[in-house]
């Protein structure tokens, strides 16, 4: 068992915890933070692969993931603020207008 394999496993554990957070918590803020956790887990896996393969590409990918995540957070939080203004709530279950 080498370092990289362990980090990949760690990343999958963190990813599953993030998924649970998305699926089990009602607050949009919690959901959002869990998504960040999942992204970070993926980053860990990327860095582990980069380490194992001796390549820089994995690290570059993480860099771009972080940038996109930053953009996502900016827009996502703006959405949450707007929704909170109209709904007085951050619960995702209150946002079910798109029911078929």
């Amino acid at each position: 068992m080498d370092a990289a394999s362990f980090v990949v496993f760690l990343s999958s554990v963190l990813f599953v915890i993030g998924v649970m957070g998305v699926l089990l918590r009602r607050s949009a803020l919690m959901t959002f933070m869990s998504v960040e956790l999942m992204l970070n887990a993926a980053n860990l896996a990327f860095v582990a692969f980069a380490h194992r393969l001796g390549q820089l590409a994995g690290q570059m990918f993480v860099f771009f993931v972080m940038t996109v995540a930053a953009a996502e957070v900016a827009v996502g939080l703006a959405l949450i603020v707007t929704i909170f203004r109209t709904k007085r709530s951050t619960s995702v279950d209150d946002l079910a207008q798109l029911r078929g």
């Binding site: 990289a4 980090v7 860990l44 860095v47 980069a50 380490h51 690290q59 993480v62 860099f63 972080m66």
Partner: peptide
Amino acid sequence: GAVIFLVLNAPFL
């Protein structure tokens, strides 16, 4: 996570 990056030889990240 940042510390793990350091251990994995990714100081910039």
